[in-house]
Design a protein around this nucleic acid. Structure first.
Lengths: 334, 334
DNA sequence: TTGTAAGCGTTATCAT
DNA sequence: ATGATAACGCTTACAA
């Protein structure tokens, strides 16, 4: 417990105390180059006594990479998003990198985001925002910063993606609707743009048609709880009621369920089948018991860091796309 | 659009291009020291052409502070927590700092957390974890890194806190229970330790007693949805049913409501008053319509950055505690 | 107002 | 295996 309140302990201090050169200190802490057990020991001891910690800023400056990973995310209010963020940051930490959180709420200027990323020499970037301005990842790619896009359509040279298997998911769902005898199912989509939503929309129509299920699509303003509420209103004012409702994501579905219950009473859920997509935490709550398709955020995070790490190793490999497996979670609503 | 794929543009490049010294470049970008309009202009132009960006790593190394703010948070699964994180990171960004996200999930070694913080010379730390190991903020304080504790009891020299006004909140709630004629209300707490929970527990018992309301306390394992479910089970197996239930936080309350409905049927909520604390997003969902006390996460975030900034300015001022105002949100359950 | 030069704390190269 | 030494890119006295 020394009292150097202001001046911080550097490798020089440790070197002096241990009676070695600062190169030796560097080598012991970076596991790089040769150090004898003996000196390593001495260095460690001196470091402990002095309370020395490697200065990552200096290290990063020298190595030209910071071990920081930019985590660009919009809509953290969405609980599914925050789950993604949580798992991503855990995964990033697990690989000895640090997540630099960059929320892109109410239209933060994308050039600002780019600046943060580039200013800090981030070693990589994960983008889970719904509609990331192309400029962001283009800029990163141009500066040869590894980028992983999560559930985004965009494709770009040297940029990897991980996409959840919407096709399989929709297939599972359509089968389920079909198996429970649904003939007219309405899909709840959203006006706001999003790859996942559009993609699911298209596939649902295709696969439903193949099974002889007729489809209608509703477009509330947003794809969140409020949007679901609005969709429920549209649903109940339609001339012929559908026998099933597929929501582009769980967040919408919860709103739809609540809206339906509000208008039609709690028992209405027995008459109409509802399904969502994502399997967010709340979907399992007993007020909802939503049947849905699960995409594991943990696996997603795992894929992201693997892709990132591999591209940090070898920046010039061609773009890869990892598909995230999904599975049907059968609950009460379908 | 130049093609220096690998070599990045430094202030020297800009200086050359603009025909000035690199000090001039530094001055223009750091708004520090004198620069004539004329040279500023030249520098800016050259920088634009070259696509120059200040290297924050180098700047930080030199200035001995990184403008990074450590965001230490546990339990990001809790939607209220993620809302806090979201607002905090926005507020941090707004002050031209960057949030370094440090989740402390399944007992990450606290020394690891400290390392991350100290390795990067963070300019400050916000801790919203429920039970942050004392060692973390002690270490930071010793290294004179500004720390703000959110809803924590601990107090330490040079460490600031922002605490939500539990007293006022509980008062509002007790009045509400009293006004609707409740005489026996059960409080749902939790075995897991948490300042907010304990604090509310104690105050509730005190204030309820003053009003002649008798209280019982339940201790499920955790203070989340599952804990609420468990509490509901205990509640329904008690000999005499209470006429009111106060949950230490909304997350518990949602579980309690769902548990109650499951056991007693949907209509049971007419018989029993329920209230929570925090006002998380889901509490307003129509399946719950939970009456609760709101603590604004935005204001909380605002307080945090203000305290942090002020302490960065003047590190030696005495500890301050900011109290977060709360208000009663009346919905259907009480 | 501008330029020069000395750091900031590491790491990597090159001798030894 | 170890020790000088030159980067890494920026800021900031101090001179001019």
């Amino acid at each position: 417990m020394n009292e150097h309140k202001t001046k911080s302990i550097t490798s020089v201090d440790v070197a002096k105390a241990a009676g070695v050169s600062r190169a030796a200190v560097s080598r012991t802490f970076s596991n790089n180059g040769y150090v004898s057990q003996e000196t390593k020991q001495k260095v460690m001891e001196a470091a402990n006594v002095l309370g020395y910690r490697v200065n990552h800023l200096a290290r990063s400056l020298n190595r030209q990479r910071s071990d920081l990973i930019g985590l660009v995310v919009a809509d953290m209010d969405n609980p599914f998003r925050s789950q993604q963020v949580s798992d991503l940051s855990e995964a990033i930490l697990a690989t000895n990198h640090r997540p630099l959180l960059i929320p892109t709420k109410k239209g933060r200027d994308s050039s600002q985001v780019i600046d943060m990323l580039l200013h800090y020499n981030v070693s990589g970037v994960v983008i889970t925002s719904d509609t990331p301005p192309e400029s962001i990842f283009k800029m990163c790619a141009d500066s040869s910063v590894p980028v992983v896009l999560v559930n985004k359509q965009d494709t770009h040279d040297k940029i990897d993606r991980v996409i959840c298997d919407n096709h399989k998911g929709i297939e599972l769902l359509v089968s389920a609707f079909s198996d429970s005898g649904c003939e007219r199912v309405t899909m709840v989509s959203s006006k706001k743009d999003s790859f996942s939503i559009r993609n699911r929309e298209q596939m649902f129509c295709e696969l439903a048609a193949e099974r002889g299920i007729s489809t209608t699509i509703l477009y509330p303003e947003t794809h969140c709880y409020q949007g679901g509420l609005a969709a429920a209103e549209m649903l109940t004012s339609e001339s012929v009621a559908p026998d099933g409702v597929f929501c582009a994501n769980d967040y919408l579905a919860l709103g739809v369920i609540d809206g339906l219950k509000e208008r039609l009473g709690n028992e209405c859920m027995a008459q109409i089948k509802v399904a969502g997509f994502d399997d967010m935490q709340q979907s399992s709550w007993s007020s909802y018991q939503l049947t849905t398709v699960k995409q594991s955020t943990e696996e997603m995070a795992q894929h992201c860091v693997e892709l990132l790490l591999s591209r940090i190793e070898d920046p010039d490999q061609t773009s890869r796309t990892r598909t995230l497996d999904v599975s049907l979670i059968k609950r009460k609503t379908l």
